[in-house]
Design a protein around this nucleic acid. Structure first.
Lengths: 147, 147
DNA sequence: TAGCTGGGTCCAGTTTTCGAACGCAAGGGG
DNA sequence: CCCCTTGCGTTCGAAAACTGGACCCAGCTA
C-alpha cells in the first residue's frame, strides 16, 4: 500500500478507508458476510482473477480480518473465516447497504433480505448521540482536530 | 468500472461496494466530510495525483455524490460539495471510524474528535432491530436470498 | 509586463490487474 | 499403475490504472 502519506497524517478513519478502499476488498468482505469461505467459491462468485484473490485474502489474513481454518474434504484444505475483528465490520456493510437501498436501488428492489434471527424484525443502522439519544447526520456534528 | 459482472448478480450492497471500493474514493469522501471543497485542497491534503483526483471528482459528480458549485475568488472557480446523497454516506464513514478506533487505533488515539453540535455528546453508530430494538451483530441475522 | 494562482490536461514510466495456462497433491476409476 | 478430477494456488505477457512532473489558461498583482 503506497498511500502511506495519507495514513501518516491520520486518523482512525483513513486507516480503514485505505484498507477497504483497495479494489475488491469491500466486495470480498460482502461475500464473506454472505457465507462464502473457500477460495474457489470466492473466485466464482466474484469473478475476480485468482492472483488478485490470493493477494487480497492474504492481506485480510495479515490484518486479522479473516483467518485460515483447516477443514478436510479428504486432504487438508483451508477456508477463510471472518474473525471477530472482521465480524465487527458488519455495521460498515450494513451502512453501505442501507445507502445502496436508498440511492442505488435497482427497480426490482434488493436481491436479498436480512432479518433479526430472534424476532424476525428488520435491521437498521443509526448514528446517534450517546448523550441525548438523538439521530445525528453529517451536519449535526462538530469536528475538532486534535493534532 | 469493469466489475460489472459482480454488480449484475447483485444487490444494493455490491453496487456501493464497487463504487467506494475504487482506489481513493473512501479517502476522498473522508476529506469531503472534513470540509475540504477545493481541488487544490484535496490534492495537497491527500497527496493524490492530479489526474486521478480529476477523475474521481468527476465520478462523484456523475454519481451525484458531489456537485460543482461556482464560487468567486475574483474569477469563477468551482468547488465540490457533498450533495444530500453524499451526506447520506455519513453512517458509512462513522462505522468505519468506529471500527478503526477499536481495531486500528494508533497508540496516541484518534486525531480528531466528533461531538453532537446541540448537546456536545459523543456520536455512535448502531445496528439495531427495528422491531425489538436490540443491537444486532453479524451473527444475529438471517439472510434470505430473493433472487 | 512578468509572475502567481486555481484548476485542470498531457504524457512517459511504473504498478496493478487481468486472463489464461500451468503446477501439485490426494483421491477415484478402471 | 495410469489418468482424471478437485481445490488452491503460482506464473506470465498484455492491458489498464496510477504516478510525478511539465504544461496550459485566465485573471489578478507587483
Amino acid at each position: 500500500m503506497s498511500r502511506v502519506k495519507v495514513v501518516d497524517e491520520l486518523c482512525t478513519l483513513s486507516l480503514p478507508a485505505a484498507l477497504l478502499g483497495e479494489r475488491w476488498t469491500l466486495l470480498l468482505l460482502r461475500q464473506a458476510f454472505l457465507g462464502t469461505r473457500r477460495f474457489e467459491d470466492f473466485q466464482s462468485a466474484m469473478d475476480i482473477s485468482r492472483s488478485v484473490l490470493t493477494e487480497r485474502l492474504a492481506t485480510f489474513v495479515d490484518e486479522g480480518i479473516l483467518r485460515r481454518v483447516p477443514y478436510k474434504d479428504s486432504r487438508t484444505r483451508y477456508e477463510y473465516r471472518l474473525t471477530e475483528k472482521g465480524l465487527d465490520l458488519y455495521p460498515v456493510l450494513m451502512a453501505l447497504r442501507k445507502w445502496g437501498d436508498k440511492w442505488m436501488a435497482p427497480a426490482d428492489g434488493p436481491s436479498f433480505d436480512l432479518h433479526h434471527k430472534d424476532c424476525g424484525g428488520d435491521v437498521d443502522v443509526k448514528v446517534e448521540c450517546t448523550t441525548c439519544g438523538e439521530g445525528v447526520g453529517a451536519r449535526d456534528v462538530r469536528v475538532t482536530r486534535l493534532r
